[in-house]
Design a protein around this nucleic acid. Structure first.
Length: 421
RNA sequence: GGAGAGGUGGCUGAGCGGUUGAAAGCGCACGAUUCGAAAUCGUGUUUGGGCUUAUCCCCAACGAGGGUUCGAAUCCCUCCCUCUCCGCCA
């Protein structure tokens, strides 16, 4: 959510920033709502003030033993007027709140302009793209020929966009999550956390998935209306909801499965493990003082890059343009890993600075030692990495002519020293 | 699932329906005292919003939401959460 004060005082500038990401802010509608809100609020508060002072004097008169009947008569209709005013104000504030919750974050000045993914800007490349003296197989072929990957059985059990992994490949996926968690917690300063996979609507509102993107989520029919998490960002960032931290930064890393309905992506990446309803991810989350958040974004992105580097996977770093960043993000870097079979780079991590957008929605604050006051903090997160896609990348980059998969050096300690899967 | 207890400020913990945003203590900040410190004394110390250059002033908030009332932390209803005992369970 954007700062209401900024919207009130600097509406044109905000609208201009939002226009960069292709969002048209209905300034007239906002102004109209806001003006009515102000008038109604002042009127309501005057009525409340009158009620309070009169009630107080009734109490005082009663204490003196005076007759309070005439005083009561004076306030007879006050209650109804007040109740009506409060109801009007309440309805208006709900409408205003709905509007506020539906406005995306303003892009940071350094986020490049653009309308869609074609306008994203590559900022770095790392690693050698592997050369094969044979035609590299894609992960589906490799997985199936080795008997490690079974989409048909998954389709029977669940449906499309699921997979059953078997034996060494299932084990490698587990090894990857251990490797990533260990790296971030022991070398990058993150605290490992284990979090719920079912969350309530308040948490999803906090990070920005709700109210706009309900269609992307799986909702359960539990009484509490739980949703399956689409990313660990939701439970982990919401650790800070409604709290005042006394020391920042706080860094968390968690491994969770992620569940996405992939509504609207029919026909895209239907083959293989690239786009599934359920996948494993290791996620980093940082809560930082506002002044530090852009340095933190560079650092956090570096932590995700470190995983790719240790695994020896070639990748590029892309600054998403204003038309491609997520709803809640002010700036996002995607890391794209080289996939030989697709002959292209594919997203394997997304690292974002949300500034105070999420913090304001979830009232996540810290006590600024300079002011002594509670202030909104900044939130960031990044995949470190999407584990399922890392499995794909390793298979495709580390295959040999026989379809066997070599194990990257860094991963061997997690697989009993094995050099091959 | 059954039975019971309880949710008040950074923490502990009071609070007959009326001047209680809330006693007291702890903690914290500033000041006094001191060579310095401890102890002691004094002052201050919630958050959000409205108006405002600012001070002041006003409104709201005692788990959440409704209700009763001129007036609710206090009474009533619903829900959420925590704790204890029993049952069940990985």
């Amino acid at each position: 959510m954007l700062d209401p004060k900024r919207l009130r005082n600097d509406l044109d500038a905000v609208a201009a920033q939002l226009a960069r990401r292709g969002y048209t802010l209905d300034a007239a509608a906002f102004t109209a709502l806001e003006e009515r809100r102000k008038a109604l609020q002042v009127a309501t508060q005057e009525l409340q003030n009158e009620r309070n002072t009169r009630s107080k004097s009734i109490g005082q008169a009663k204490a003196r033993g005076e007759d309070i009947a005439p005083l009561l008569a004076e306030v007879a209709d006050l209650g109804d007027k007040l109740k009506a005013a409060e109801a009007d104000l309440n309805a208006l504030q709900m409408a205003l709140q709905d509007l506020m919750l539906s406005i995306p974050n303003c892009p940071h000045a350094s986020t490049p302009d653009g309308g869609g993914e074609d306008d994203n800007v590559e900022v770095a490349r790392w690693g050698e793209v592997p050369k094969f003296d044979f035609t590299p197989r894609d992960h589906v072929e490799l997985g199936e020929m080795n008997g490690w990957m079974d989409f048909e059985t998954a389709a029977k059990i669940s449906g499309a966009r699921f997979v059953v992994l078997q034996g060494p490949l299932a084990r490698m996926q587990r090894a990857l999550t251990q490797f990533m968690l260990d790296l971030h917690s022991s070398e990058h300063g993150y605290q490992e956390v284990y979090v719920p996979y079912l969350v309530n609507a308040d948490s999803l509102r906090g990070t920005g998935q709700l109210p706009k993107f309900e269609a992307d989520l799986f909702k359960t029919n539990s009484e509490a209306g739980h949703y399956l998490i689409p990313t660990a960002e939701v439970p982990v960032t919401n650790i800070a909801r409604d709290t005042i931290a006394d020391a920042l930064p706080r860094r968390f890393v968690a491994h969770t499965p992620c569940f996405r309905s992939e509504a609207g992506s029919y026909g895209r990446d239907t083959r293989g493990m690239i786009r599934q309803h359920q996948f494993e991810k290791v996620e980093m989350v940082q809560l930082v003082p506002p002044a530090d958040s852009y340095a933190a974004l560079e650092e956090l992105t570096g932590h995700a890059e470190a995983v790719l580097q240790r695994l020896g996977l070639a990748y590029r770093k892309v600054a998403l343009c204003t038309g491609d960043i997520g709803f809640s993000s002010a700036k996002t870097y995607d890391l794209e890993v080289w996939l030989p079979a697709q002959n292209t780079y594919r997203e394997i991590s997304s690292c974002s600075n949300f500034e105070d957008f999420q913090a304001r929605r979830m009232q996540a604050r810290w006590r600024n030692p300079e002011t002594g006051k509670p202030e909104l903090l900044h939130t960031l997160n990044g995949s470190g990495l999407a584990v399922g896609r890392t499995v794909v990348a390793i298979m495709e980059n580390y295959q040999d002519a026989d379809g066997r998969i070599h194990v990257p050096e860094a991963l061997r300690p997690y697989l009993g020293g094995a050099e091959m899967l």
